[in-house]
Design a protein around this nucleic acid. Structure first.
Lengths: 154, 154
DNA sequence: TACTGATAGTCAGCATACTGAGCAATATCC
DNA sequence: GGATATTGCTCAGTATGCTGACTATCAGTA
């Protein structure tokens, strides 16, 4: 019988599990309390000032019902702001705060360190291969989840 | 600046996200309501009759606080049973039911189909490479999460 | 302009995952 | 044998991530 540990789905779960643990440990050691999900959202808000929640969700492949809570927590920590949009009264425009910018800058080393640690069992070439293969598999499966990656609108 | 989508942690999250969606879709289409996590637990109970919860958790790298709820749901669906252990009154022995065995047998094609679909963007060799690299990275990071993989005790 | 459909966001509910705490039972050490 | 440490399990609390439903708003069209 095929072992669970030989199924790609199970490997995906374990790699993600380790990745999250490593991220939280590194960022925590650096003195910050930010999850991988919150980090990605904050970095994307910084890179796309004034974007709305649906666009943000698309850029990082989060479900729109998940992004609500993530932003709630970023706002509550004073790292981001949520404003009503002037062009579309349904939408909320997101901005990073100065505090958010400071936090992003300070945790960057920890985040980069975490990415290295998750690949520490692999050579540089193997790490690149893994990234490339994950990219390729993800691109092919992008539309299969409820929260696919979406390019920003022009 | 490095894009989120080039970080291994983010790729891990996306691959897992797609893997879960594909699994639920395939198994759901086959007429069953079982999550990837519940499937792995049930298959492992079947392969190791009478094991206790901590051992089960170790075999599939789940946290011990997570396994409680997973087993609750398997028991509630009539797929597994939880009995007091005779040797250790703290422990619970787990058994698969006939219904659980039937379910496992019937959903196997859907589970296998799901594993193929998650790799559909890759050639056979690329799929093998991805599995091998994930294995290697996971082995090196095993102890970094709160729920590492553990071999069964002799 | 009124109708229709689509879109932005939220909410309730459920299932992972984890932290940290606690209880009961077992194992170990003196 | 009794104190101590460890182990198996559970629980409360928090954070993703999803389904499905709902409101408010917008866009397109008859």
């Amino acid at each position: 019988m095929k072992d669970n540990n030989d199924m790609p789905g199970h490997l995906a779960r374990r790699f993600q599990q380790i990745a999250v643990a490593v991220f939280l440990a590194e960022v925590g050691d650096a003195g910050f309390d930010l999850t991988p999900v919150q980090y990605a959202a904050l970095a994307t808000i910084k890179a796309n000032p004034g974007l709305d929640q649906v666009t943000l969700a698309g850029l990082i492949a989060y479900d729109r019902t998940t992004i609500t809570g993530v932003i709630d927590r970023l706002v509550q920590k004073g790292l981001a702001e949520r404003r009503a949009s002037s062009r579309d009264r349904r939408a909320r425009e997101l901005e990073i705060t100065d505090e958010g910018r400071r936090t992003l800058r300070k945790i960057t080393p920890a985040v980069e360190s975490a990415q290295r640690i998750m690949l520490r069992g692999l050579s540089a070439k193997e790490g690149e291969d893994l990234m490339r293969l994950l990219h390729k598999a993800i691109a092919a499966g992008n539309e299969l989840s409820r929260a696919p990656l979406r390019e920003a609108q022009a």
